[in-house]
Each structure stands twice: as C-alpha cells, then as structure tokens.
Design a protein around this nucleic acid. Structure first.
Lengths: 334, 334
DNA sequence: CTGAAAGCGCTAACAA
DNA sequence: TTGTTAGCGCTTTCAG
C-alpha cells in the first residue's frame, strides 16, 4: 500500500493525495473526502522514511536525552514537549544510553529529521569546538553547561543551575547547623561530570568556612546508582570514622546512603544530617524526607525551549541562563 | 555531503561506497581504504531515511514501550536489548506517552523499519482482533496479556506474571498474619488495566478466606502516580475507618501510601501491614522496606526475546509464558 | 571486484 | 484546484 495505490483507488493524482495527507489548502472538499475514505478503508500508513527524504524542510526540534529512564528528566521533558508544541514546532526525542555519543546522535538527527534546533538533556560538560562542527543548527544544553570543554560562550546556549554554588549552599546549611565533619558522597572525582563541579563547590565551601578538607571523608563511587551509593556508604561506615553529616551530590545517591546509615543504627537528623542536590520526587517519599536543594525542573525545560526558539527566529543570540535552586527542608537536616 | 560526493571524491562508484559503508564483502582493500579515508575526512553521515527506504529487508526487532520513564521497565528493556543483540538482530525502541496508540506506532514502525518482529512493553489488555490486523509480523506482549481483548490465544504471544494470582497471594500473606480488614489501593476499578486484574485477585482471595468485600476499604485513584496514591490514602485516612493492612496494586502506589500512613502516625508493620506487587528498586530503599511480590524482570525480558526469535525463525508458534513472582519479605509485613 | 541504473515512497516545483 | 515529473539519498539487481 503506497501513495500511488491510494491515488489510483481514489481516482486522483499522487500529489493530491499528498496534499490531503499533509493538510494543504487548495484541495477540493470532494477530493479530500474521496482520498480520506480510501485511506481509511485500506488502513494506509504513509512511509516515514520516504516522507522525510522527500521533504525539503521541517519544523522539528530535536531533543537528545542521555539516560533511558532518569526520573529527574521526566518533568523537564514534559515541559520541553509542551513548550515546543506551543511554539508551533514538533518535538523529536531520542534517548541514548550512557555509553553512546550524543553529538553523533544529534548530528544524524539533524540531517535525517532536518531539525531547526536541538536541546541536549544531561550531556557531558566537555564538548570540544571541533566535535561540535558537525552540528549546524542552534542548540541549547539543558541541566548542564560546558565547564570543561573548549567551546566559546558564544558557540552555544545553556540553561542550568549553578552546580558549584548549589554544593556550596548545601555545605553552608550544614555548617550553620554546627557540622564540621561533613562526608561527601560523589561519583568519580575526575569524571568530568556534574559530580566534579559539585565536589568543587564542596571544597570551596570548606575553605571559606575554615574547615580542612579531609580525604577520609570522601566517598567515591563509580556511578550515580542508588545501589552503588548504598554499598559505598555501607563499606565506608565500616571504617568507623567520625562524622556528623553527609552531603550527597545527588538525591539518588543520598537515598542509597540513607539506607546504609539507617542499617548502621544512625538516626537522621539527630546522629547524622543529610543533604543533597536535585529534588526528585522519590526522595520526597523517603522516611525521613530528604532535605535537598531542588532544581527548578519545569522552569529549566520551558526556559530551554524559549531560548532555542528565540535563537531560531533570530530574536536572540546565544545566552547562558542560570536558574536558582530552592531548599526543600525535609527531615534530614533538622 | 551525500554518497555521491563521497563516490566522486574517492574515485569510485556509489555502489562501491555503499558496499564499504555496509561492510559487504567483495570490496578490494584498496577501494575500502580510499572510501573510508574520504568518509573520515569529510565527516560524512549517511542519511537514515534514504537508507531505510532503499533497503528491502532488515534484521530489526521493534520494542514499543508505554511510559516515558517507568523504572519498572528499565531492567526489562536492558535485558531485551542484550537478548536481541545476542540473537543477531537490532533493537529499535520507541517510547510512547500514556495517551498514544501503541498499535498505530507499532504498525508504522513495522513498515518504516521493516521489522521482523515486535515486543510490546506495558500495553493495554484489550486489543481487538480487528485492530491488530495492521500488524503483520509476530509480536509478543511483555508484562501483560490480552485478558480483556478479543484476540485468540493463537494470534499472539505473551510473557507475564499471573497478576490475579499475585494479588491473591499478597492477600493470603496478610490473612496468614491474621489480617481481615484489608484496604486495597488501586487505580480506576474498570480501567481495563492490570489494576483491574489484580483487584479481581484481591476479591477472589477475600472470598476464599471468608472475608466480606467491604466497599469502605477500597481506595481508588486515577493514576499509578506516587503522589496521587499519597493524597488518595491521606484523604481516605480522614474517614477514620478501621483497618489493619493495606494491599497496594503496585509498589509505586504503596510508596505514596506509606508516607500518608506515616504522617497519620501509623507504624508499619505494627499498626498496619503493607504489601504490594512489582518489586522495583526504589521500594527497597524505603523505610521500612516495602514487602512486595517481585516480578522477575530480567527473566521476563529474556523470555520475551527468546520466544519472539523462535517464532521468527519458525522454531515455535505462539506461546503464553507465565512467570512466578517471588516475595521480598521487606519490613512492612512482619 | 566494480559500475550503471532502476527503484524505494514520498514531496514539491511547475504547468495546466 | 489538479496532475506531471523530477528529485530526496540510498540500496540493490544486473551486467561486465
């Protein structure tokens, strides 16, 4: 069943069929009805590849998401989706696994789908100028920026929180409660991920508050997994080191740590305070409720779209938006 | 940059370029090197649409997943992915939102990607024979079957747990602990979803154990959301009805309910026991750890692939696999 | 081992 | 308002 068959069956030309299928004006009601009837009857489904191939342009905006099911992105994606729709564009989303190359994916997508623009969600912080030349449409990095890369500020746009400052703030909250022995739970110190940036904020805060950085209070795990955080914390606890608070660089990791702490008989927040960054829904259902610095997910999504669309329409050039976090008091901070 | 340019630039024909791009044999080392060099130099990326359009067949297996980020599916997807790879096929995954039509999506995909077979993850239980005629390759329903539809058993295959029995078992565990006033937390009684099947299991168990179904102990919410479960439970608690246990039809909902119970001052499992079905990772990090009947996620994924591949290769016809659940004791049951 | 050429199923000028 | 036709960028016979 191709467009040709439909044309023949409904007694019109393929172009007419194409026109009704694409809601073009300049088609008589009569022709329209005939075609639609045949389409219905034979359950005709146009071939996407042919369609995309033939098209000279599109109003597609691509979204490349790293991570198959990061709950943290769900809200942002929803917001991005409706924002794109509202702006009159069509969202084309591609999720990629941790190991895959988002730039390659984006470059392919740009050509295949004839994108007008791109949004990266959860990419790396170390894009190089050279690699980005394969992307020829405007793009905005959402939830991260290019801290470790070689891009000029003017080569791209971004929407994110100030991760370094958020970590600083988290530590400050703890210090204000009188804590000095603050464990930090992070993933790969030098992994070039957001973990590194937040760790830097932790160190900066310690310095500012006159606390010596203690290597013994650093728990480094190899992922952002809740399970790994759990076992990482558990193993560390066996060392029996003194501490009164934990700063986890993500909610997810904090959740794993909390279980380990609980099993070790530590009461939160009395024996040990816990604070993290992210503000995902799940951590709100923990017992006790996790105290954390929330990223403004909806706002991030809508800002990213607004920014991108402005750039596409020439109403704006590159821009770097930094959004504030808000403290969820929770029950692990006191 | 098209294949033609590459051909010209490397002094061979387009067919030769196509051959090296597709790893065909029958290409001289020399030609191969030349082409690859040019491809590298110009950073050429073949157009996917054109590729798919020209192709006469593929070794693609499609996976249609309902729900953008259901953590419950993550493990299954991973397993399906590696299973498909191992079998020498290529996975093409498409995630669709709650409102979208998975059959339409699958039908499009089948034609566009020239699929050999399909796996549905988390679809509905009420497919009609008529609608499924648009799918012309073998498919297996994973995590659900066609309980409410009009398909013949021989029209499809499935891999899932016995949801009715799982609910029955859950209630039985509670009854064995002496509970008689068992609240059930479910989504839309007549929604045709798995909620309905599990509710049926709940009722069957009550009957078998001589407990009168009490309408006052049914909490019905409109989604599977943790937040809705929380507020649903909270509202219900205001009614001050007597009960000693809660059976939630999903882990997620149980997690919401637990928070409401906690806030109402109910200790688990002493004041009230809680049990659910699913066994997602997050519920293992709750405090107390949720007692639940775990679905064998990895097994479900691998079985689904094995079954589908067998059918594709003519080594098997339709089959309906029912996998056992296992109890995670947890801390909410006693 | 290689190339020419005919599609794949659609869209989009261009005429009519 | 409609039809004709030339692509879109690739794969795949079929000769050579």
């Amino acid at each position: 069943m191709t467009i040709k068959d439909i044309a023949r069956l409904s007694g019109v030309s393929v172009s007419t069929v194409s026109r009704v299928l694409n809601d073009h004006p300049d088609v008589s009601e009569e022709a329209k009805e005939k075609v639609l009837a045949v389409v219905q009857e034979y359950n005709y489904i146009p071939n996407t590849s042919a369609r995309e191939l033939g098209k000279t342009s599109s109003d597609n905006i691509g979204v490349v998401v790293r991570g198959l099911s990061n709950p943290f992105y769900t809200k942002i994606i929803t917001e991005i989706g409706s924002g794109i729709e509202k702006a009159g564009y069509t969202m084309v989303m591609q999720q990629i696994a941790a190991g895959e190359d988002e730039i390659m994916t984006a470059a392919k997508m740009e050509r295949d789908k004839k994108l007008q623009g791109l949004i990266f969600l959860g990419g790396n912080l170390d894009y190089t100028k050279e690699r980005m030349t394969s992307i020829n449409v405007p793009y905005v990095c959402c939830t991260f920026n290019n801290q470790y890369g070689t891009l000029d500020k003017s080569d791209y746009s971004s929407v994110c929180i100030d991760d370094n400052q958020a970590a600083y703030d988290a530590v400050e909250y703890l210090v204000n409660e009188g804590h000095r022995k603050i464990v930090v739970l992070l993933s790969g110190v030098e992994d070039g991920s957001v973990s590194q940036v937040r760790f830097a904020g932790y160190k900066r805060a310690l310095k500012d508050f006159g606390i010596q950085l203690d290597e013994n209070l650093i728990i480094e795990i190899n992922s952002f997994n809740i399970a790994d955080a759990y076992s990482g914390m558990k193993d560390w606890l066996k060392k029996n080191r003194e501490f009164t608070a934990v700063f986890a660089i993500s909610d997810n990791m904090a959740m794993g740590a909390m279980k380990a702490l609980r099993e070790a008989g530590k009461k939160m927040p009395d024996d040990v305070a816990v604070i993290a960054i992210d503000g995902i829904e799940a951590s709100e259902y923990m017992n006790p409720v996790l105290s954390t610095l929330c990223q403004p997910m909806e706002k991030m999504g809508s800002e990213a779209v607004k920014l991108l669309v402005d750039i596409i329409n020439g109403k704006s050039t590159y821009r770097h938006v930094i959004l504030p976090t808000t403290l969820r008091e929770g029950e692990t901070l006191k």
